[in-house]
Design a protein around this nucleic acid. Sequence first.
DNA 1: CGGCATGATTTATT
DNA 2: AATAAATCATGCCG
Length: 369
Amino acid sequence: MEDQARMMSGLVGLSGLSQVDVGDHDAGRKQHSLGQPQQDIGDILQQIMAITDESLDEAQARKHALNCHRMKPALFSVLCEIKEKTVLSIRGIQDEDPPDPQIMRLDNMLLAEGVSGPEKGGASAAAAAVAAAAAGGSPNDGSIEHSDYRAKLTQIRGIYHSELEKYEQACSEFTNHVMNLLREQSRTRPISPKEIERMVGIIHRKFSSIQMQLKQSTCEAVMILRSRFLDARRKRRNFNKQATEVLNEYFYSHLSNPYPSEEAKEELAKKCAITVSQVSNWFGNKRIRYKKNIGKFQEEANLYAVKTAVDAASVSSQASQANSPATPNSGSPGSYSRPNTGHAHPGLHPTNGEGLFLSPPLQPQVGLQ
DNA sequence: CGGCATGATTTATT
DNA sequence: AATAAATCATGCCG
């Protein structure tokens, strides 16, 4: 009977109600053990070590006996009463934020990188890469690296998913286990569904921190991969001569306001076979570098001024007015040579007004800065 | 290899 | 959101 009582007190202790002592004849022993807790722990350890299958069976039998004890319903209701009171104090501890912002962030990123989300890796990606390389007469050297990147991304994605699956399996297994335990124990002590729910919540929080680590390291891996394969700075290729010419032509012919509109950018992008943002980059770089050292660009400016002037001359041979091709360098060359000029927004952004770029190529303003 | 050119990115500004 | 300015990382040439 002493064993039963101890077991009972152990069960109760699990629920955090250890203050409810059960076995009366255990009291003396407890007093004693409180004085020497180490010995008590050693005692328990020894008992645990001594557990065998038989003793477990025996324990089951005793548990059953306990559950069938005639005083059990009474004890149970007492426990319920106590619980009613304590549960209120427990309640305040919980109530946390279900949507973890950190995990949301990582999720979004993984989704954006194509690691999570709809399955489109593997064969279709490889096929797409091959198709891109094969089709279209352009031997895009980037596609090889890109397919390499895709392959590695797929690899990461595979690892990520298998880990995630393992994690989910372990989580649900553990949750099930705990729930079974709680259900089992609920025969002996009162456990409200809410309490089980709370327990599951705690487990999930614990597991989600593991999940976050997984997602975190996956994100890191993807970022490293990105930086190695996709960071355009690492595989920068100069634009071809013709593209540079087109861009320079526009720049120097709009020197007074070298801020192409969105449509103009699109047109330039199309002409140069580059993207609109590359056009924006080019103009950003060009403006700042030109401004920084106008002298260095004199030759170039002169060249393109002449070039556009020649173009303008050949074009304006029918519709010309007083625009004399004899003075191509003095005016703002080709200011009207493009249809885009019509929607160039005057005074759009230049911080010092348009004056910054007003100077014709051959007459640099020295006091610009 | 050193050094400048150049496209892209990052940060600050408006 | 677009741009200026600073910075990065590579390309390219002597």
